[in-house]
Computed example of a mutant assay.
Amino acid sequence: MTDPSATLTVDELAPRLNSATVIDVRAPGEYASGHIPGAHNVPLDRLDDALTALGAATGKGELVVVCASGARSGTACGRLAGQGITATSLEGGTQAWARGGHTLDRPEGARAVWPMERQVRLVAGSLVVLGILLDLAVPGARVLSFLIGGGLVFSALSNTCGMAAVLSKLPYNRRRAGDAGLDATLRRLTQA
Rank of each mutant, 00 (worst) to 15 (best):
A192D: 10
V120W: 09
G100S: 11
G29H: 06
E108L: 05
L186V: 07
A14Q: 03
G93W: 08
G34P: 02
R106C: 01
E12L: 08
S19N: 03
V153H: 10
L90K: 13
T75Q: 14
H35P: 00
V120F: 08
Q119P: 00
W97P: 07
A39S: 10
L147I: 14
M163E: 11
S5F: 04
G149S: 10
L17E: 00
R79W: 09
P4V: 03
A156Y: 09
L130A: 15
T52H: 03
A164R: 10
P15G: 03
A96W: 06
D135I: 12
G61L: 09
P115W: 11
R174K: 14
A53V: 05
V65L: 12
A184F: 14
S126L: 15
L144E: 05
A6N: 00
I148R: 12
V10D: 00
P4Y: 06
L157R: 13
G38S: 07
A184R: 12
V22K: 04
T75Y: 14
G70Q: 09
G55P: 02
L134M: 14
F154K: 10
A184S: 14
H40Q: 06
A96N: 01
L144Q: 07
A177H: 13
D183W: 13
T58R: 13
M1H: 01
Q119Y: 03
E108R: 02
M116W: 04
Q83T: 05
L167M: 11
S145M: 08
L186C: 09
W97F: 03
T21H: 04
D3N: 12
